[in-house]
Simulated scan of single mutants.
Amino acid sequence: MLYEALLLLGVLAFAFLLPQMILGMMTKTLPPGWVSLMHVFGVLGLYFYVLWGRNGQTLAMQTWRLQIVDAQSGKLPNASQRLMRYVLSWPSLLFFGAGLIWSLFDRDGQFLHDRFAGTCVVLLPGRPGE
């Protein structure tokens, strides 16, 4: 998650900060806080939704050979599962990581947002020679 957060700093710098700075310089105003929060929510949502749909992996997940799959079929998650997983991951993290801590007690070791979205994180086989 730390590696993912570092990569997300770059995504947010490009897709959030840059437009906010340009808008601020052009209009000499800043959008209300709730607009900025929705901008962040949208930028991150698009990042996760698109990458999970492409191959079930974000950039950081590719490094660690992790993949999001449908818990029943093992295939890539469908559109509603990706959206639900993203939306539910926010409270999972923001309530002091309760949805992550849940995985310590879950019978399958799943995060709470994965349980509700019908997805799971799997470890892909290693490369030959590892």
Rank of each mutant, 00 (worst) to 15 (best):
M26W: 01
K28S: 14
P32H: 12
P32N: 10
P32I: 11
G33T: 14
G33P: 06
G33N: 10
S36P: 02
L37S: 09
M38V: 11
M38W: 01
G42V: 04
G42M: 04
V43R: 01
V43P: 03
V43I: 13
L44I: 14
L46D: 06
L46H: 03
L46I: 15
Y47Q: 07
Y47L: 09
Y47W: 04
F48Q: 07
F48N: 09
F48K: 05
Y49A: 12
L51A: 05
L51M: 14
W52K: 09
G53I: 06
R54H: 07
N55L: 07
N55Y: 03
Q57F: 05
L59T: 01
M61A: 06
Q62C: 10
Q62I: 15
T63I: 15
T63P: 06
L66N: 09
L66T: 03
Q67G: 08
Q67E: 13
Q67H: 05
D70F: 00
D70T: 03
A71K: 03
A71C: 10
L76W: 00
L76M: 08
P77D: 08
P77K: 04
N78K: 06
A79V: 14
L83C: 12
L83M: 14
R85Y: 01
Y86R: 11
V87A: 14
S89E: 07
W90F: 10
W90Y: 08
L94V: 05
L94T: 04
F96H: 07
G97H: 02
G97Y: 02
A98E: 07
G99S: 03
G99H: 00
L100Y: 15
L100S: 09
I101Q: 02
S103Y: 00
S103V: 05
